[in-house]
């Protein structure tokens, strides 16, 4: 099981969708679960067509993206954490508030003991521009859900103004974050058109007003 958690707007959903497709392309049976109880707008359910076309199972609230603004979880979420035959990618809501949703699944995750919980960080986000702030958000999330992170995903970007230099310029902070927390760097992510070889490429959804 792979869990993506992090600061609000750090890029968890885009990474979860791309990572689920990546696992599927390696031949794994993959389920992605949209467990975001915070944000009613940008969700992994947005990518249902792309995901299902490649054979990824999508679990989301029936009314996710329907403008019904309820902090609820899909009932099928238990099936995701209890089914040990499939690889699950969990897209968790932002900050400690989003991570509260994870708490109820933690006993199952600990029992199975086969998960990675990844901290997605974008050092260009104003509340996580420093390693100190990034660690603070990280600890808040861990306290809220009762699970400890196992790795770091460096998703430093400036949206449409992201350059390769900007991503590489964040390596020093990412290294320091790893050092301070004792966690390994799981991957560096970048939009596919600029991603260098060592980076995990992301395909992003385009919006009509851009």
């Amino acid at each position: 099981m792979t869990l993506f958690c992090g600061h609000y707007g750090s890029g968890k959903t885009n990474i979860a969708v791309n990572y689920a497709l990546h696992l599927r392309r390696q031949g794994l049976e993959v389920t992605i679960a949209d467990l975001d109880i915070v944000n009613p707008y940008f969700r992994s359910k947005d990518s249902t067509d792309v995901l299902e076309a490649e054979g990824v199972r999508v679990i989301a609230l029936p009314f996710a993206n329907s403008s019904v603004d309820l902090p609820a979880l899909p009932s099928a979420a238990y099936a995701v954490v209890q089914d040990r035959t499939r690889h699950a990618v969990l897209d968790i809501g932002g900050d400690d508030r989003g991570a509260y949703a994870l708490g109820r699944f933690v006993p199952y995750l600990l029992e199975e003991n086969d998960y990675e919980m990844l901290y997605v960080v974008n050092f260009q986000r104003p509340l996580t521009t420093t390693v100190f702030d990034a660690v603070e958000v990280m600890r808040e999330i861990e306290i809220a859900c009762g699970l400890a992170f196992t790795g770091i995903v460096n998703n430093t970007n400036l949206g449409a103004e992201t350059t390769l230099d900007l991503v590489k310029g964040s390596y020093r902070k990412a290294e320091e974050l790893c050092k301070v927390t004792g966690l390994p760097l799981f991957m560096v992510t970048a939009e596919s058109s600029i991603a260098a070889e060592e980076m995990f490429p992301l395909r992003l959804q385009k919006r009509p007003f851009e």
Partner: peptide, 14 residues
């Protein structure tokens, strides 16, 4: 230096 923000956050920080 530029940061990546939601419009709502930008109002608050400004």
């Amino acid at each position: 230096e530029k940061v990546l923000m939601k419009g709502n956050e930008a109002i608050a920080e400004a």
